[in-house]
């Protein structure tokens, strides 16, 4: 599997070609991107937050992880990118099995291929939307030039503008992040993930802190990008409607274990609510 995608310069593309430019390098369709086998995660000597979780996610899938508070959804996502280390079991991402011995550099290389979006957008509020999008380049070689849009190379600025265009915020490029609405800020965070041309989008409750309309807009933007760029999307949510509308597969966690793994078309809101209340 290729670890990086080679692209045409998005600055020279027409709007219609933008999505193609952001698409990752072609890989064998349906290849397994994430494989978790009997993963256990406990903090200190406490009760395991994840208790024998086994999941595989294939290329091109859109997966919603649902479950009540404390079910282990966020822990699972953080374990996937090495922000958390599994206490037991194996985590394989892009064919590489994560290990406790992995250095910072190896983890950084893994994260290079993942676009992570947090519940809170995590933007630097005093910087412009454009600078925040450019921060997506920070882990790359010469990434220091992405610290601020004023020192970024022209082609990176063009890529950032392309990503902002994709999330329909090109006109806000010069606005400071603290001048954006919650939904706009979250879309800038998506653009920051998008500029990395990831093989995998991971989003931890991206719509949780937004009002329903903004939440739908963010999820729609995410789902559109994932579909058009054929990028795999894994997101957690408390919103059953979002899980059924924007994911093809729904995985439910409860007490650190998987209690449901099904195609969303086979599910109804009532089935999912039973997991929270049952």
């Amino acid at each position: 599997m290729p670890l990086s995608a080679t692209k045409a310069d998005p600055g020279k593309l027409k709007p219609a070609e933008i999505v193609d430019a952001l698409r990752p390098a072609p890989t064998a369709r349906g290849e397994c991107l994430i494989a978790l086998s009997d993963v256990v995660k406990a903090y200190g000597n406490g009760k395991p937050v994840l208790n024998g979780v086994s999941i595989s996610v294939h290329e091109g899938e859109t997966v919603a992880l649902i479950g009540p508070n404390g079910a282990g959804k966020s822990t699972l996502l953080k374990t996937l990118i090495g922000l958390n280390e599994a206490s037991a079991g194996s985590v394989t991402v892009f064919g590489d099995t994560l290990s406790r011995r992995d250095g910072r550099r190896q983890k950084a290389r893994l994260r290079q291929q993942i676009g992570f979006v947090f519940q809170h957008h995590g933007l630097v509020m005093r910087l412009s939307a454009l600078s925040n999008v450019l921060h997506g380049k920070l882990g790359q070689k010469g990434g220091w030039r992405a610290l601020h849009h004023s020192i970024a190379p022209t082609e990176w600025r063009a890529e950032a503008m392309t990503a902002l265009t994709t999330v329909r915020l090109a006109d806000k490029a010069g606005d400071r992040a603290d001048q954006l609405s919650g939904g706009q800020a979250q879309r800038v965070a998506i653009a920051r993930a998008l500029i990395r041309k990831p093989l995998l989008f991971i989003a931890d409750e991206p719509s949780a802190s937004l009002d329903p309309a903004a939440g739908h807009e963010v999820m729609q933007t995410f789902a559109d990008i994932a579909e058009k760029t054929k990028t795999t999307l894994v997101f957690t949510t408390h919103d059953m409607d979002h899980a059924l509308s924007y994911a093809r597969r729904v995985i439910a966690l409860k007490n650190g274990r998987i209690c449901l793994d099904a195609e969303s078309r086979d599910l109804r809101t009532r089935d999912l609510e039973a997991i929270f209340h049952g």
């Binding site: 990118i81 921060h135 997506g136 920070l138 882990g139 920051r192």
Partner: peptide
Amino acid sequence: ALEAIGAS
């Protein structure tokens, strides 16, 4: 967020 990106 920047740590998750792999920033130094």
